[in-house]
Design a protein around this nucleic acid. Structure first.
Lengths: 332, 332
DNA sequence: ACTAACGCGACATAATATGTCGCTGATACC
DNA sequence: GGTATCAGCGACATATTATGTCGCGTTAGT
């Protein structure tokens, strides 16, 4: 009566196919899936397997009428093989520390199970209180990223990934009341901790930037989105300078004089492949490098204050001269 | 002859206990481990199980004399249950994009299996070429992080975690020849993409900063490290301003006048809990906020150039006045 | 109220997981 | 170089279990 089977790998396939809370799968669906995967087995066995597996794994079964809905229990920590190596766990912890102030909390929350696992692995080492002995030094202050609703995050990400429309309440800045939009997601931009969805609304063709933290009551419409043909996010950002960042597509042959203390770390990590550092006198260093012409580089150079003098190119020097002049005016 | 057993969970335990390449475990060790985990079983069964499992999972067995060494095959992509949710995969992809220019490649490589898995999940969505439709805009140019040897990374991380000594070749800046150090790792600092190990050497008590990309030929000494009693990395960084960053432990009651365009994004992500923005005239905004007194905040403010005028506190205004004066001098 | 579909207990039986034994070959110790 | 030791593994008997089948109770849909 019994066929030759491979119970172990079938069980494995089942565990993989069962989704995490709040998604679920019915016994019949799972049996069908297994049949497609070359595990043709009686549904009775699938039922038995599920009951058996649920005694060993945090599987949860919810009866919906006569149908059993199976899922991984809410908050069940994922199991993985091979388990996370200690060094990988360390990397996860570094990354967590690094990202916490920079990315919206709700995006990071999606990786929470991995961070938890990493902490678990670290607990078995002697490096207790490791957080106190690792530090990542960032430039710039930590802006407080506005919170994004988890449901908004899930619907938006899924809609973007599956190229579907969705409906959402949006509260424009300086207004109190949410209006309802039907959104066709085109691309995602994160800038200074704010997440924007580049989208069109209804059947219109003009692109809007919708901040995720201004969204509420999302509703997946399960309909294909209307995407502008040939849309390309990079082109969009650069050509239209929609996010007001890059200055031009060209590059700059930078010539800058640093104080030695400011130039110090450039000896370790370089600005460009062709970077050259030349000592000038006792306490100055001349930097020459070819870099993309962007507002980022201006920002970076300005941040050094009076530790940096821009020598060239001429246009950039003039820009900086203008800024210096204006600044001087402020503080007369 | 046969005892009642729980084959499934025993197999699971085995899979979890087998380490990833290049670590390994012998059959006897594994059997011993299982015995401790309440799976008391004949070693013959452990042998059979391993052979059986290796037909279904990428397990690799290396014979060392008469002993079998088992490990997950090199580059075997990890398996996890429940499998990564599509939204989590999306988050991983975002994070990967975010981190690539900011963290040393070898640290990121430790997370590679997870990024690979995430990409696999994304492949099942309609969001092909998603990389082109997601963009994270960073401030500051991308410095090129110098490469760290993988072996160095592994030995250093493990030594730090297990509080062990190690021996390493170190090539100080502007020297060609590596000298050999015996290192007691105390803490790790990442700054501008450079990874430093704060350490003492041999039996000395003075702390050195060793850059990981200057290390070579690491050798774990499998001996407990000699750690300075009461060492605390944060205290060390702040008190000794060893990494020349924070200015003081106090806070600043910042009063700053922004041009409206520069102040724009502060309406979305705030600098502090108590941040206040007040319009001044037609095209200026007054910001007041209490922030930690740090060089980061100076950097950040300077980056805005002539879009920002510091009004208070007086000491900070004076600092900025001095900088403006010097700058003006450069560009006369 | 009838029917179809699902879950599940029971049962027979084929398949397999387990302990045991003994052989082979590599290592280590004298 | 001889011998004791130990790991791996093939073979075998057998207890255990995984599987298909059947039938009953229950629920949803018509």
């Amino acid at each position: 009566m019994r066929k030759s089977t491979d119970t172990l790998s079938r069980h494995w396939a089942m565990l993989q196919r069962i989704p995490a809370h709040p998604r679920w799968i019915s016994t019949a669906e799972l049996n069908q899936y297994l049949a497609n995967e070359a595990y043709e087995i009686d549904i009775r066995s699938t039922q038995r397997d599920l009951n058996h597996l649920s005694t060993r794994f945090p599987l949860y079964c919810e009866k919906d009428g006569r149908v059993n809905h199976w899922q991984w229990a809410k908050g069940a920590h994922a199991l993985e093989v091979p388990s996370m190596a200690p060094t990988a766990a360390f990397a996860f912890n570094l990354v967590e520390q690094y990202l916490r102030p920079l990315l919206p909390g709700s995006t990071l929350k999606l990786m929470q199970p991995y961070f938890v696992r990493a902490s678990g692995v670290m607990k078995n080492t002697k490096f207790q209180g490791w957080r106190k002995n690792v530090r990542i030094i960032n430039r710039g202050p930590h802006l407080q990223t506005p919170p994004i609703n988890n449901k908004v995050r899930d619907v938006v990400y899924m809609a973007l990934m599956e190229r579907r429309k969705f409906e959402v309440g949006y509260t424009p800045r300086q207004k109190n009341k949410a209006v309802t939009y039907e959104v066709n997601p085109h691309g995602l931009v994160i800038k200074e901790g704010i997440t924007y969805l580049v989208s069109t609304l209804w059947d219109y063709d003009d692109l809007k930037h919708l901040a995720l933290h201004r969204m509420s009551k999302p509703k997946d419409l399960h309909e294909p989105a209307k995407i502008i043909k040939g849309f390309d996010l990079n082109t969009y950002i650069e050509n239209q300078s929609s996010f007001a960042y890059p200055v031009s597509k060209g590059s700059l042959k930078l010539k800058v004089q640093f104080s030695n203390s400011a130039a110090f770390h450039l000896q370790e990590s370089r600005l460009s492949e062709d970077q050259k550092l030349t000592p000038v006198g006792k306490d100055k260093t001349l930097l020459s490098a070819t870099v993309p012409d962007s507002s980022e580089i201006r920002w970076w150079l300005l941040g050094f204050g009076d530790q940096v003098e821009v020598l060239g190119p001429k246009a950039l020097r003039d820009e900086f001269a203008g800024i210096a002049n204006n600044l001087k005016g402020f503080y007369l």
